[in-house]
Design a protein around this nucleic acid. Structure first.
Lengths: 165, 165
DNA sequence: GAGGTTAGTCTAAAAAATAGACTAAGTCCA
DNA sequence: TGGACTTAGTCTATTTTTTAGACTAACCTC
């Protein structure tokens, strides 16, 4: 099974991995959320090989996560911007950063601080239920496959559980 | 700059990418949250090359995200389990799944449904401020570098903004 | 006209991923 | 006793991807 086929599966994580599943894409995205937009800025900040950066930006564009726009004529220069689809990755980057903060840094030594504009606190955002507003974690959620729908592909990778503990 | 060096940076996303930044790790993690624990089950569900799977499980172990335990003697058989550090990746996998659901599936055709045990609703969890409980997105957060601390490495990849719009 | 800026491309070498056969140490069945 | 099955991997050769770093194009500034 080729990587193309894997990422075409009936699985949102597979689709997302087609876009973000490599060494650099999460770091590039993270830099986008820190305001970076230009090729050479990404290249210098990340120390990413130029060829690889060009390929990654191309892929993010192809998937509609960023777009490229002219910011100066003569000579024509381009910069990259997050699309709405790209901005919607904010929760992913943020929860990943919180996890990294928790396991790799002391609380007093966090490299980047995130302040909630409206209330003024430095925060690590939490995942909550949109219906009852309680925090949710792995134990508070039950996953299940959607019922088979005629005409739609079968969900092959649903939840399982082993009989033994 | 080697990948080892990149992932050693003063940046939580870099540290996280050292663990998860590749084609397969997010998919493997996702399967862990669906209850999968055994080598052959991962291999069959994901169609991942056996060598690659062995390497990934090893890396996740090395980083303390999963551990390997005996579940049967004679012959000795091992299975893998998420550690607390691994379970703490739940928000990352969940927000990534929500993003994939939003952009790659119709609402009525989501492959996997997540039900909040306590309130019973099928939900897409939302990111909120732990202080004021409002939802947060990219626009509601201000990022800044931590002040320099003597004895600690400088934060090289802080937020930037360009003068022009 | 020398040097700088910017967004890339090109090439050869190194590293990583892949397919698929193979292994070890047992079990289960007849 | 032998044959098929189970399970968690390893081994090897090939293909794909990544990498370092030089180079380019088209303009600007001094």
């Amino acid at each position: 099974m080729s990587w193309e086929e894997v990422t075409q599966q009936q699985c949102p994580i597979a689709r997302a991995s087609a876009v973000l599943g490599d060494r650099w894409s999460l770091l590039i995205l993270s830099d986008f959320f820190l305001g970076v937009r230009r090729f050479d800025d990404f290249q210098e900040r990340l120390n990413i090989p130029r060829t690889t950066l060009a390929n990654r930006l191309k892929r993010l564009q192809d998937h509609g996560v960023i777009d490229r726009r002219v910011y100066r004529e003569q000579p024509t220069r381009y910069e990259y911007r997050l699309t709405q689809k790209g901005r919607d990755l904010f929760p992913v980057i943020t929860t990943l950063a919180s996890w990294g903060d928790k396991y790799y840094f002391d609380e007093s030594e966090l490299p980047i601080l995130r302040q909630h504009k409206s209330c003024g606190h430095d925060i690590q955002p939490v995942l909550t239920c949109p219906e009852c507003h309680e925090p949710v974690d792995a134990d508070s959620i039950t996953v299940r496959k959607r019922p088979e729908i005629p005409g739609l592909p079968t969900v092959k990778r649903g939840p399982i559980s082993y009989s033994s503990m």
